[in-house]
Simulated scan of single mutants.
Amino acid sequence: MDGVQARRGCDVANGGPVEHGYPHLRTVRESVTALYRRLSYDTVRTFSVSVAPADVAFADVDDLHLGAQRVAREMVAHYRLPDARLIVGFREMTHAANVELAAGPEYFVELNDRFRDHRRDIGAALAHEVAHVYLHRLGLSFPSTRDNEILTDTTATYLGAGWLLLDAFREDGASSQKLGYLTPEEFGYVLAKRALLFGEDPSVWFTSPQAYTAYREGLALARRDAEQPPLRAAGWAGRRRYARDRRHAQGHAPGHARAPEAGRETGYRFSADGHGPLRVSFPCPTCHQRIRVPVAGRVRARCGLCRSVLECDT
């Protein structure tokens, strides 16, 4: 991409209400799928080591500008952008940070003046901004600004830098702070997906008790992803309809089966393509790519994107 794009970076909820739950879950899952499609399984596996807390630690006695440049260099190294140089400044603004995306190699990042007094969160803001640069270099984006920001938060978290964004979440009866566009639980969910993939425990790095709680909630949802075989969420009526149509399919020649109607709430899709037996498709619990397999009792399949091996009963 040529030219300069002014890109709003990290959003901030400072003192106001913090949204909770999973309102962006569909876009988050689409973001994980897009990452695997663009990067490949092998490239995602190169991000098996997260940003270390010691590498982005920022004490109040450290020089503001030198410290910010040091943390920026750590982020650039983590995202494997050796020829990118970040120039970090501070000014008053509504949002937490902005980055100007140009052809490079220099990128100008502006941080909110509040980070002069909240230096331990500078790493979180830069994790998001450098993820913007990384996606810009990849040419990976979503059409709308909102979805693109969710893609950026998801990328930062799934590739090992976004745990800092969750750790920046703090909330009590008198005040609150959150960086990024995902809810705390959504950050916890993406972080848990990464933790399950690489076998790490990021909770030991948290300094915020609210971040730990959000991570545990996200971890529970991520584990449920892997426990949902086709039709488990379909309910009694959906399973009865499936069994009826499966019997119907078995009584006809291939290509003449009538496809069952999948309920919108299930997340599972059915098809009879006219060239073989009745098939069911469902999302991979790791990368959410849709996997399409024959209706044949117990299913064992390998995801073409993340190479996860799935075994479940249809």
Results as ranks from 00 to 15, higher is better:
Ala84Phe: 00
Trp236Met: 00
Pro285Lys: 08
Ala13Tyr: 03
Arg223Glu: 14
Asp153Ser: 12
Gly255Phe: 14
Glu186His: 15
His275Gly: 03
Gly276Ile: 05
Arg38Cys: 09
Tyr107Ala: 06
Pro285Ser: 14
Ala102His: 13
Asn148Trp: 03
Ala34Lys: 13
Ala124Trp: 10
Arg119Asn: 13
Thr145Arg: 08
Gly255Pro: 14
Asn148Asp: 15
Ala161Val: 13
Leu165Glu: 15
Glu186Phe: 15
Pro143Thr: 06
Phe115Thr: 13
Ala214Met: 08
Ala237Arg: 00
Arg290Thr: 13
Arg258Lys: 11
Thr157Pro: 06
Ala54Gln: 11
Cys284Gln: 10
Gln177Leu: 15
Pro202Val: 04
Gly3Gln: 05
Pro17Phe: 07
Lys193Trp: 05
Arg279Tyr: 05
Ser281Val: 08
Tyr268Phe: 06
Ala77Trp: 03
Glu129Trp: 15
Val293Pro: 01
His65Arg: 10
Thr286Ile: 08
Ser31Cys: 01
Thr33Val: 02
Ala84Val: 12
Arg120Glu: 15
Gly9Ser: 10
Val293Arg: 01
Tyr189Pro: 06
Arg26Glu: 09
Tyr158Asp: 12
Cys10Gly: 05
Asn112Cys: 15
Ala174Lys: 14
Tyr134Cys: 02
Val71Gly: 04
Gln177Phe: 15
Thr43Ala: 11
Ala127Gly: 12
Ala72Leu: 09
Arg307Phe: 04
Glu100Gly: 08
Leu39Phe: 11
His128Met: 10
Pro294His: 08
Arg26Val: 05
Phe90Glu: 10
Val4Trp: 02
Leu221Ile: 12
Thr266Gly: 00
Ala97Trp: 07
Asp121Leu: 14
His118Gly: 06
Glu311Phe: 00
Leu35Phe: 05
Gly267Glu: 01
Asp55Glu: 13
Glu311Leu: 02
Glu311Val: 11
Arg302Met: 01
Ala103Cys: 04
Gly304Val: 04
Gly235Phe: 00
Ala249Trp: 09
Arg170Val: 14
Leu86Phe: 04
Arg300Gln: 08
Ser40Gln: 10
Asp201Met: 06
Asp225Leu: 01
Arg73Ala: 13
Phe198Ser: 08
Arg247Thr: 01
Leu197Val: 06
Gln210Asn: 06
Arg119Asp: 14
Tyr36Thr: 02
Glu217Lys: 12
Ala96Pro: 06
Phe108Glu: 08
Ser50Thr: 09
Val61Leu: 03
Glu149Asp: 13
Pro283Gln: 10
Leu64Tyr: 06
Asp55Tyr: 01
Tyr41Asn: 09
Leu219Lys: 09
Leu166Phe: 10
Asp113Glu: 15
Tyr41Arg: 08
Pro53Arg: 11
Phe270Tyr: 11
Leu135Thr: 09
Pro184Met: 03
Gly188Asn: 11
Arg194Gly: 12
Asp113Cys: 09
Arg239Ser: 02
Ala222Phe: 04
Gly267Arg: 03
Gly15Arg: 05
Pro53Val: 01
Met1His: 08
Tyr107Glu: 07
